[in-house]
Amino acid sequence: MSECQVTLIPDGPALIRGADRIRDADGVTHEATRPVVAVCLCGLTQRPPWCDATHKVAVKP
């Protein structure tokens, strides 16, 4: 398996380079169709597992 690079964005998603597939918490596999994908870490996205920038309009605790 080739190596993936993960970059955590403060208050944002994880940017993942080099992944073909992302497996979510339920074990469902999602195909990564672009060279870099952003995976939601805040849980607010409307299109999991991908970030849709909803974190920017979320009220911070």
Binding site: I9, G12, V36, V37, A38, R47, W50, C51, D52
Partner: peptide, 14 residues
């Protein structure tokens, strides 16, 4: 563009 630009904004800003 919802998904692509959620990636691109970090590539561009950082």
């Amino acid at each position: 563009h919802v998904e692509a630009d959620a990636v691109h904004e970090h590539l561009a800003a950082r």
